[in-house]
Amino acid sequence: MSMIFGVPMAVLYGQLLIGVINGAFYALLSLGLAVIFGLLKIINFAHGAMYMLGAMGTVILFDTLGVNYWVALFLAPVLVGTVGVLIEYFLLRRIAGQDHIYSLLLTFGVALIMQGILTNIYGVSGLRYSMPDVFKGGVNLGFMFLPFYRAWVIVAALIVCFGTWFMIEKTKLGAYLRAGTEDSQLMQGFGINVPLLVSLTYGFGVMLAAFAGVLAAPIYSVTPVMGSHILIVVFAVVVIGGLGSIGGAIITGILMGVVEGLTKTFYPPASSAVIFLVMVVVLMVRPSGLFGKEA
C-alpha cells in the first residue's frame, strides 16, 4: 500500500472524506453567520445556541410527540427560525445601530439563557437520538466504510448551501439582501420593508444553524452545551473566510473541515488548535480573510 508520511493512502482518503463531512457542518453554520452579519451587521453569538436548539428540538420533538426525523428536519428549523424572528423583533431591533458590543453581549446573553434553561431541564450528559432506520448501515468504498448517514450529511448540507447561495446571488429576494447589506436606508426609500427583511434574515440565518443541528442529532452527542464548542471553531472559520462573503463561508467551512481531518491523522494533539493557527496566519497575511474584500 502506498504511504504518505507513514500514513497509508487509504486512510488519507478516508480522513479527507471525514473532513468534508465535518466541514459541511462548519459551512452551514458559517453561512448563517455571514448572512446575518451582512444585513444586520452583528456577530451572532447566539448561533451556537440555535444549532443546539435544532438538535435538542429534534430529540425533544421525537420524545414528546413522536415526530420523526424527516418532519423534524423541516419543523425544527422552522420553529427555531421563529424563535429567531422573535428575538430580532423584541430584542435586537432595540439596539440596532448601537455599538457592536451591545449586540454581542445581547446575543451572548440569549445563548447563555437558552443553555441554562435546557441544562436545568435535561442536564449536560447528552440525550440519545436513534439513527433513522433508512440510514442504518453503510457502503464500503474500498478505502473506508462510509455510513449512509454521513453521506446524507454531505448531500443535505451541500444542497442547502448551494440553495442558499443561489437564493442570495441569483434571485430577487437575494438582490434585496445584497442591496440591504450595502444601504438599507435607500432600500426603504424604494418602498422595501427593511425591518421585515431584517427579521426574516435573522430568522433564516438561525434556521441554517438549526438545520445543521438536526443533521448533527443522530451522530453527535446532543447536549445543551454542544453549541458553545462548535461556535468558537465556526467563528474562526468565518474570520478565515472573511465575513460577508457567502460563497467564501461555504468553501472555507469545507476547507477547514479537511484541514482539521488531516491534522487528526498526522498530528492528533493539534487537531483542536489547527483552525485557530490557520486563523492567525490568515489574519497576518490577509487581514480581511481569504474571500473578504481588501480594505
Binding site: 480522513q15 471525514i18 473506508m144 454521513r150 453527535y220 454542544m226 487528526k264 491523522t265 494533539p269 483542536s272
Partner: peptide, 20 residues
C-alpha cells in the same frame, strides 16, 4: 494508540484510524 483532544465531539476520524 492515538491521543485525542478532551473533549472530542466527533470521533469519526479517530475511529477510522483505529479501524485501519
Amino acid at each position: 494508540s492515538i491521543r485525542h483532544p478532551f473533549p472530542t465531539p466527533d470521533f469519526s476520524s479517530f475511529i477510522l484510524q483505529a479501524q485501519a
